[in-house]
Computed example of a mutant assay.
Amino acid sequence: MNENELNTLGFKAAKDTIQVLKGTVESLQLNLSQERDANEGLQLTIESLKGDNERLQEENFQLQSELQSLKETAGKEPSAEKTDNSKASLQELAQKLSFYYQDMKKVDAKNLTAEDSETLYNILDYTFKTLKKAGLKL
């Protein structure tokens, strides 16, 4: 083979290598774009969950305030029978809700998943229904 033929073969090999590299770059750019889209979706989910968390914390604070108010009101009642009934009612509520409270404590607030948010929603839903059945006005 002469020098021209070798140069031609070298240029053809370089051209083929460039084509392969272009394909690799396009594939990597597509993968990067998909990962960015996935990250944006996760960011939106995180922001939504943060908003839900803030709302739930506020509702929890309100419920605790109402519970404290109820405890103070129950403590002022002169009738021992009413106090005993109130304590019994609170104990029944505690028993009904304790299982769900334990489930809630198992959730890692710093690493919430979609499954965790569904669990938390169901816990709150059950809790509020139970409180309504017990006579608490929300």
Results as ranks from 00 to 15, higher is better:
V25H: 02
S98A: 06
L70P: 00
S79G: 11
L9S: 07
N111Q: 05
L56T: 06
L90G: 14
L44D: 12
S65K: 10
T83A: 15
K82V: 03
E54S: 14
K105Q: 10
K106M: 09
N7A: 15
L70G: 02
M1V: 11
K71P: 01
E54H: 12
E77H: 09
K12I: 07
D125S: 10
L44F: 13
A13P: 00
L63H: 01
I18H: 09
D16R: 07
D116Y: 05
A38C: 09
D108C: 02
K132A: 13
D52A: 06
A80M: 10
A38I: 04
E81A: 12
M1H: 05
F99L: 06
T24Q: 15
A38Q: 03
L42Q: 14
E5V: 02
K137L: 03
T17L: 09
L28E: 02
Q95K: 13
F128G: 00
Q102F: 12
T24E: 11
S86H: 12
N4T: 10
Q91F: 02
T73P: 01
S33K: 10
K132V: 12
T45S: 11
F11P: 00
L42S: 08
G23M: 05
K105R: 13
E59V: 05
L6T: 06
M1I: 11
D103Q: 15
N111F: 02
K106C: 12
I18P: 01
K22H: 09
S65I: 05
A94N: 15
L56E: 03
K15W: 08
L70V: 08
K132H: 10
E77P: 00
A14Q: 03
T113D: 00
Q95T: 13
Q34F: 12
A134T: 01
F11N: 15
A94L: 06
E77V: 15
T73V: 11
M104F: 05
S69K: 05
K133L: 07
S86K: 05
E58Q: 08
F61K: 14
Y101R: 05
R55C: 02
Q57P: 00
L67V: 09
G23Y: 08
N85M: 15
L63Y: 01
N2D: 10
F61N: 10
K15R: 14
S89F: 10
L93A: 01
L90S: 14
K15P: 04
E66V: 14
